[in-house]
Design a protein around this nucleic acid. Structure first.
Lengths: 233, 233
DNA sequence: TAGTGGTCTAGACCACATC
DNA sequence: ATGTGGTCTAGACCACTAC
């Protein structure tokens, strides 16, 4: 079954990708310039430009003014990762979503989180610990700090009723975010909340979001053992 | 310090993002159509189109013909992850890179890997186990299967001399790849090769790449304990 | 069926890096 | 100095889908 390309630009993208994969154009080679390709494919130069820019973003091509377009030698390729919303993730897997707030109170900010949020240690932030369930089995534990300066109104919300992430995301779009993946051995609390054994390897996502008022929230998400995060191709 | 936008489209992207973050345009709101914005910003419609498409890819806007452009209600935002090349990663951290091939031989493919590669169980593939070092401390262990059908010539390569990933990436560009992150407790072999204790939590990246001849390679990369993978914003 | 975004075109000017 | 990609424009036609 041959895919029908959605647009001329897409068709050119595919064809160029094919030539690279089939090694008609080798790594390091210079490919014909936009004007030539426009003639070959019978389209305007802008269309070729769009197609080649796609491949450049993908990391397959290197483009430079005057030097022309070359097939990348050591392509460090990129993938997009969709930051999922827990509820959608759980419900998408055909399970029923629920969550339980284990703790919600104003607390002084510890040093490590303060550094991540670029705030001063000891500042009073909302500290929230939540367990997210799929069909009443623990799916993820969340340890979140919320900065009421950047998210005014957060003090008044009962996050037992409204999922903190959803409330934040709906009310405070962010400008910038830091994100890191790591693996951690479950500590005693993780183990209890995730109903697993201490020491189990957990995939941990640490994320801090900012708007123009500063850090909005910083959260540590620890997934249940065996969880896999898939990159969308 | 105000950033000078590189292009008109970029400037429009920033301005629209600002309006959303500052809640001039609320989540769910319909924003003016392209023609109106083109007049407002004094540019051609194509320029507005480009700017808004960027924000739509980012997940901030929902665009539909006839319905117009709306601010996304529950933005499931996306991030791009750069798949790093081990050597560059190590050298980028100011360490000296080296690697050691622990095993390289033709072996029958186990069932789980066969499923990932869409090949038949028991097929003869090149099986490679490698440890990557930074300043002679273990950085990552690699367990790789290479399909000589899709990567002809691989049988003849001495991967002690040439890093398998670099050889593959230079010679066999891929069309498609599957990728998954997870956390695993170090097994006995992981622990030995990474010079850590058994049971330590390891960040594991499992990746399979394909070209038009089928699966090229499937690899499990286990990073040293404490490793963090950062998403590039 | 009409309004909106999706795409394409032909042409133009510019910025940059190499020649 | 000059060839290449980067960007923009004005206009056009089309495809989708909400109305």
């Amino acid at each position: 079954m041959i895919e029908k390309p959605a647009s001329k630009a897409q068709a050119i993208t595919s064809e160029v990708r094919r030539r690279i994969v089939d090694r008609e154009w080798r790594q390091g080679d210079r490919i014909p310039d936009e004007a030539e390709l426009a003639v070959e494919f019978g389209v305007a130069r802008a269309t070729v430009n769009k197609a080649l820019q796609l491949l450049a973003e993908e990391g397959l091509l290197d483009r430079k003014r005057r030097a022309g377009t070359h097939v990348t030698v050591n392509p460090a390729r990129k993938t997009t990762l969709t930051i999922p919303i827990v509820r959608e993730q759980v419900e998408g897997a055909g399970m029923e979503y629920s969550h339980r707030v284990v703790a919600q109170k104003l607390s002084p900010l510890p040093a490590d989180i303060a550094a991540r949020m670029a705030l001063t240690e000891g500042a009073a932030l909302i500290h929230l610990r939540t367990v997210h369930y799929g069909d009443s089995r623990p799916f993820q534990v969340e340890d979140r700090w919320i900065n009421p300066e950047a998210a005014p109104g957060a003090e008044l919300i009962d996050f037992q009723r409204i999922n903190a992430n959803e409330w934040l995301v709906r009310n405070f779009p962010w400008l910038r975010n830091d994100m890191a993946f790591s693996a951690e051995n479950a500590n005693a609390r993780d183990a209890r909340l995730l109903e697993t054994r201490q020491g189990a390897a957990l995939l941990v996502l640490q994320r801090t979001t900012f708007n123009d008022l500063g850090a909005i929230t910083s959260v540590r998400l620890a997934f249940h053992p065996g969880y896999q995060m898939l990159a969308t191709p």
